Amino acid sequence: MAARSQLTAAAGPATRHATRERAAIALLILAWGATFAAVKVGLESSPPILFAGLRALLGGAVMAVLAWSRSGRPVLAGQGRDYSLLTALNVLLFFGLQTVAIGLLPSGLAAVLIYLQPVLVGLLAWWLLGEPMTPSRISGLVLGFAGIVVVGGGAFAGHVSPAGVALAVASALAWALGTIVFKSTDGRIDGWWAVALPFLGGGALLTLVGLVVEGPDITWSPQFVAALAFAGLVGTALAWSLWFGLVSAGEAGRAASYIFFVPLVGVVIGAIVLGETLTVSLLVGAALVVLGVYLVNCRPRRG
């Protein structure tokens, strides 16, 4: 009886941790999935680079307040290289390149190419961080990406911009490298400031570039303000905090596998909020994604 009580007590914290992790994953998927619709609404009233900069700047400002209240003043000594890489990869290159790519490509095709990121993270984490790459994980990554391809398959018809394809793939690579850089810091920098400072600095630079290149041509309608607020507060501050929290708590490749669900949720929310069409390919793609995520995350049984 005493041994059973001890086992139950030991299982309690593990169960609570698993529950919190599942809740964080679900919230992250919903936040990033809904952000597609918010950005689409926002781009009706703003140039793309300027919108991306304002979104990053707003999210970074909120995160800076939270980071200061939770962690105090940021420690910058000896961490300039880490912060510079996170800013360049996760904000300037990822946000900037994906925004331009979406302007050159059908949105479905752009999403398929940008969500090469989980596959790239799995490969880079195996190559650079020494994380295991089992046959099950390889199969899961391939099936997950195949599901995204099926969902966005209709976008492959028609004219495709080679420059748009190259920019979308480059943005996926930048995001994957940014994830590996954060994982490789291994606690050297505070997780809150790892989001706040890059998005503050990168958002300011993107906003400046947008003002110079595109001009301040923004229609400040209630719809635009709501879209910008959601994209900045939920899609950036909240979502990226959850993302880095999951990456720091486990394997980078495993955490990245979950975001295969994001474009699926984005398609459903687009159908509900924006009246976009749901197709049979969504159901087939969803089945492939679910199977892929299971294979990536299942653990081999011990003898």
Rank of each mutant, 00 (worst) to 15 (best):
V293D: 09
F261A: 11
R70A: 14
L104W: 04
Q79S: 12
Q98N: 14
S139Q: 12
G60L: 02
G285M: 08
R188C: 05
A231T: 11
D217C: 00
S5C: 05
G215Y: 05
G270L: 09
R20K: 10
S161M: 07
A64K: 01
G235R: 07
P47G: 04
R22L: 14
A168Y: 06
A3H: 13
L200Y: 05
S71M: 02
I180D: 02
G72I: 09
A271R: 06
G187T: 09
I114W: 03
W243F: 14
K183R: 15
F36S: 08
F156C: 03
R137C: 06
K183A: 14
V169T: 08
Q223E: 14
L264D: 00
V247W: 00
T219S: 12
A34I: 01
A172D: 03
P74V: 10
V293K: 13
Y258P: 07
L242K: 09
D217T: 14
R55F: 07
S5N: 14
L105F: 05
D186V: 12
V165F: 04
G147H: 10
T185A: 09
V165D: 01
L167P: 11
A61T: 15
G144M: 06
A155C: 00
L291Y: 02
F230I: 06
F224H: 10
R188N: 08
R73H: 10
L104E: 12
Y115P: 05
A56F: 07
A256E: 08
S136L: 12
W192G: 09
A37M: 02
A52H: 07
L28N: 09
P216A: 15
L43I: 13
V100P: 11
V265M: 12
A231F: 02
L116R: 04
A111Y: 07
G152M: 10
F230H: 14
G187L: 11
A172C: 08
L113Y: 01
A176G: 13
F182M: 15
A229V: 02
R254Y: 09
S241V: 00
G130P: 00
V284R: 08
I25M: 12
L109Y: 01
V268F: 01
T134A: 10
V91W: 03
M63Y: 03
T15M: 15
G270C: 10
L206C: 09
L116D: 02
G232Q: 09
L93A: 15
A168I: 08
M1R: 14
I29Q: 04
L242N: 06
N90I: 01
E276G: 02
G33P: 11
P222W: 05
G292Q: 07
V112M: 08
E44H: 11
L295F: 13
V234W: 05
Q98D: 06
A239V: 02
L211G: 10
A26C: 10
L177G: 00
S84A: 15
L197E: 01
F244V: 05
V142M: 10
L7E: 14
A229L: 14
K40P: 00
L205V: 15
L288P: 05
A249V: 00
G72D: 02
A52G: 13
A18Q: 13
V296Y: 01
L288W: 02
W175E: 09
I269P: 06
V119R: 01
